[in-house]
């Protein structure tokens, strides 16, 4: 494994594995709430944030973070105002891509760099960028651990959670902000368009074989981390783009999990009696 002695591979591995392990932890709540595309919408807003950062001359991370936090607040307000969930997401989604392209074209030389962040460039990361990714992931991890019980209650049933005394409104806003942090944290390594895939696909794969929510969450994080490691090494060996390779490995895990689930069910279906 000489490849692991290469500095750029070490940096890519740390960043991709950390992001891909943490993203499904958040994705478990997002998927359960039927909001699988929230991360995708946030990615488009982060695109606008990066474009704006190049336009005004600040770090892309700062621009992405600022606009995704604002978008999280806007998404929360529009959802709570009674606008259908997918409609408010669509407004954020299209607004982000339009503004991002406008800012990027106005920023002159920044256009290529902005477009590069759409699919990430894991092999070009600096240790400073890796440190930023790990720091954002730690914030997300602490938030998920601290809020686990209330988030589970919210994800299962918002009305019942509210009656149980869970501060639902603040929690929904916090969850949206955490999604924004994951997207921004993953933009260098996986890209703004594909980072949200790691919030959803490992969760979908884990749900095929797990029997509890907690097990789904843990298995999804393992699938995410494993997909990142395998995908990155495969990309290096096959001279492919890392983000595409990682997401395709995760999809492969989903296919394998559905086969495992089908094989488990077959003998049971033949011999079971309904209770």
């Amino acid at each position: 494994m000489d490849v692991l002695t290469l500095g750029f591979m070490q940096r890519a591995l740390v960043a991709c594995v950390v992001v891909s392990a943490v993203a499904p932890l958040v994705g478990t709540f997002v998927v359960q709430r039927g909001q699988s595309l929230t991360g995708d919408g946030m990615g488009h807003v982060a695109f606008a944030g990066v474009g704006l950062a190049f336009l005004v001359g600040v770090a892309p991370l700062v621009g992405a973070l600022a606009l995704t936090v604002l978008a999280a607040l806007a998404l929360y307000r529009t959802e709570r105002s009674g606008l259908a969930g997918d409609l408010s997401l669509a407004l954020v989604f299209y607004g982000g891509i339009a503004a991002g392209y406008l800012f990027a074209t106005r920023s002159g030389g920044g256009l290529n760099a902005v477009l590069g962040l759409l699919f990430g460039s894991a092999l070009d990361l600096t240790w400073g960028q890796v440190a930023a990714v790990v720091a954002l992931a730690l914030v997300v991890l602490v938030a998920v651990v601290a809020l686990y019980g209330p988030l589970v209650a919210l994800a299962f049933d918002e009305s019942a959670a509210r009656v149980a005394g869970v501060p639902v409104d603040g929690l929904v806003l916090t969850l949206t902000l955490v999604v924004a942090l994951v997207v921004v944290g993953g933009m260098y390594a996986l890209g703004l368009l594909l980072v949200s895939a790691m919030m959803v696909i490992p969760v979908a794969a884990a749900a095929q074989v797990a029997t509890s929510y907690r097990a789904t969450m843990r298995l999804a994080a393992a699938i995410g981390a494993g997909s990142a490691a395998v995908g990155l090494l495969a990309a290096y060996a096959g001279d492919a783009t890392p983000a595409s390779s990682i997401v395709l490995v995760a999809i492969g895990c989903y296919v394998v999990a559905t086969v495992v689930r089908a094989r488990r069910r077959r003998p049971r279906a033949a011999g079971s009696v309904a209770s």
Partner: peptide, 14 residues
Amino acid sequence: LPVSVDEVVRSGLA
């Protein structure tokens, strides 16, 4: 997603 009976019941304590 998969959720066990125990998890549903515990969520009432959130």
